[in-house]
Write a protein that binds this DNA or RNA. Structure first.
Lengths: 141, 141
DNA sequence: TTTGTATATCCGGTTTAACGAATATTGTCA
DNA sequence: TGACAATATTCGTTAAACCGGATATACAAA
């Protein structure tokens, strides 16, 4: 497939659009954040992010056991225009505000010690200092 | 699927992008023009056009046995921005110029009496008595 | 009416995308 | 080292997209 079509195909998926919307608003996020906020499985999150990375839309940065993803800096006016328009488009979707709110709540939770638990599979308190219960799911162990 | 993703999905196909590029440059075209210029089968042309019509990207107008397709007039600034950026994007594809050239050659051929023959299936000279020139927007003279 | 053209639609078949579950990999910490 | 957490990748299945060929419909002209 040629480049233009390939680019649009990336945008033709709800989950990827949601991820991009989050990344437009947060500079960088780890996979675990995205799973939690969008309530999707880990493999789904990771796969979609890999897809976008392969197309040069996002980059990742490894830090310890975490992978942080962020939007790629773009070169070229046309690409800049695309991103700008995309951001506007995403901001006008009905779910836009709610997603950002969920993101903020999640990040606050996380600060307090919560960790990934999108589908009730995992749960931990990575921060030693009184890490506490994420409210999201019961302790699967 | 939500609206944004659905819109991008439409653009995630070479043939549809090519059709849109032609329509950006010609006000209206009939299916037969598109088959000929893009060298695709009739069912493929018709199907893709129907897809775009169902999504409100193009409209059709029946005149005799011909169906003329054109871009829908758009309402809303965001939609206008999308179309404008899309046109720019399409114009910068490597095949853009060649397609327009083929379009012009085809339309000239057609004026002289040629008819659909994308895959070598059909061919005729429907224009006999100086009648009916399907009114293209002015048409190359 | 008959013939033929332009287009739409239907019918399999093939390819591609997306998914969850399971597993593999990598890094951390005890 | 071993256990575990975060992420990546593989596997098998399901769903969707796309396609060409065949057929159906609509219209035009003889």
């Amino acid at each position: 497939m040629k480049e233009a079509a390939r680019f649009f195909k990336i945008l033709a998926d709800e989950s990827r659009l949601n991820m991009l919307w989050l990344l437009f608003n947060r500079r960088e996020l780890c996979v675990c954040d995205i799973m939690a906020v969008l309530e999707i499985t880990q493999s789904k999150a990771s796969r979609h992010l890999a897809t976008m990375r392969n197309l040069g839309i996002v980059t990742d940065r490894r830090e310890g056991q975490w992978s942080y993803y962020s939007l790629c800096p773009v070169e070229g006016q046309l690409a800049k225009d695309h991103l700008k328009l995309l951001k506007t488009t995403l901001s006008q979707r009905p779910e836009a505000d709610q997603l950002l709110e969920k993101l903020h709540i999640w990040l606050k939770e996380k600060e307090k010690g919560a960790s990934c638990t999108p589908d009730g599979k995992r749960c931990s308190a990575p921060l030693k200092t009184g890490g506490m219960r994420p409210s999201l799911a019961g302790g699967t162990r």
